[in-house]
């Protein structure tokens, strides 16, 4: 088999760094950190506020909690009919299934669009793009009618099955664009080695598309994790709730809202996403360099 592995990157600032370069590096990191503090201020403030007593949440613009307390985390975790551990579990289940479904189904479709010739290809491609143009609010009702008729309400099927059927054209299109940057010569070489389309897909395109697959996985994870409308419509029973529904139940314009616990749980709900990001970004960014073909 062929190997396609660009040489590992040379770090820009190696051990042989000169004094000038050192100054430059420090300056660059300094700028980065300043920019980041500006960008991350709202998030840092939220984390700080989550450690303040519940009725002091909005008292200060400072990032420092002041009267430090963990009450918001304790109260927030147990508020509602079930604890957040249940919501985290539900969210994770739906999210992981969605990631798997989306990556597989979209990669398959993208390969066909990027590499294969078939009748009505241009038409189908246009249809695929067309499905992205309609705002989802107007298809929401007919979809609900459909899922209700299938008796899928209060199951996770309406949220996961569509992912296995590649209904999110964004990701197909994304992968098509990625795959089309890969040279055809690779396919040809593999074909000479006796690979069919399935072989080319599995042994050439998939490994080389790892950044695209990683991006798809990451985005699917985040979109599903943050989705509120879908769970709201389809997961009515509290034992099926996701994290976003739990978060939403802290605020109500007609009664008592609890901001401290909201910020505490919002902070916690970022953890899996950030964790997934760190896991996925290795695939994403270092994909090509580390995963030569086997």
């Amino acid at each position: 088999m062929t190997t396609y592995a660009p040489a590992p990157r040379k770090p820009l600032f190696g051990r042989t760094m000169s004094r000038n370069k050192m100054v430059l590096a420090v300056a660059r990191h300094f700028t980065m950190i300043v920019v980041l503090i500006v960008i991350l201020y709202p998030l840092l403030w939220m984390v700080g506020a989550s450690f303040r007593p519940a009725n002091e949440t909005f008292n200060t613009l400072s990032l420092w909690p002041g009267n430090f307390t963990l009450d918001n985390y304790v109260d927030g975790w147990t508020l509602g009919s079930f604890t957040f551990s249940r919501y985290f579990f539900n969210s994770l289940l739906i999210t992981l299934l969605s990631v798997v479904g989306n990556v597989i189904a979209c990669a398959l479709a993208a390969y066909a669009f990027a590499r294969l010739e078939f009748p009505f290809k241009r038409t189908l491609f246009a249809v695929m793009l067309g499905t992205m143009l309609l705002p989802y609010h107007v298809t929401l009702v007919p979809q609900y009618v459909l899922f209700n008729e299938l008796a899928w309400i209060n199951t996770i099927l309406p949220l996961t099955v569509p992912k296995f059927l590649a209904t999110d054209a964004f990701f197909i299109f994304l992968m098509v664009q990625f795959m089309r940057t890969l040279p055809r010569e690779l396919d040809d070489a593999a074909r000479l080695d006796g690979c069919g389309h399935v072989g080319i897909f599995r042994r050439i395109i998939l490994p080389l598309s790892i950044p695209a697959l990683g991006t798809t996985a990451l985005f699917t994870f985040i979109n599903t994790w943050n989705d509120f409308l879908g769970p709201l419509l389809y997961l009515n029973r509290p034992e099926l709730w996701t994290v976003t529904q739990g978060l939403n139940s802290f605020l109500d314009a007609t009664g008592q809202s609890t901001f401290g616990p909201l910020f505490a749980m919002a902070t916690l709900s970022l953890a899996p996403v950030v964790g997934f990001f760190f896991a996925a970004q290795r695939l994403l960014i270092e994909g090509i360099a580390t995963s030569g073909l086997k």
Binding site: A105, A109, L116, F118, P119, K121, P142
Partner: peptide, 26 residues
């Protein structure tokens, strides 16, 4: 190749016909 292509596309086509096109046309 066309058959292979439709094989690769089959999940998407099923999703399109069952879940996407219907609500769009509706």
């Amino acid at each position: 190749e066309a058959w292979v292509a439709f094989g690769f596309l089959s999940p998407w086509i099923v999703g399109l016909l069952l879940l996407t096109i219907g609500p769009m046309l509706y």
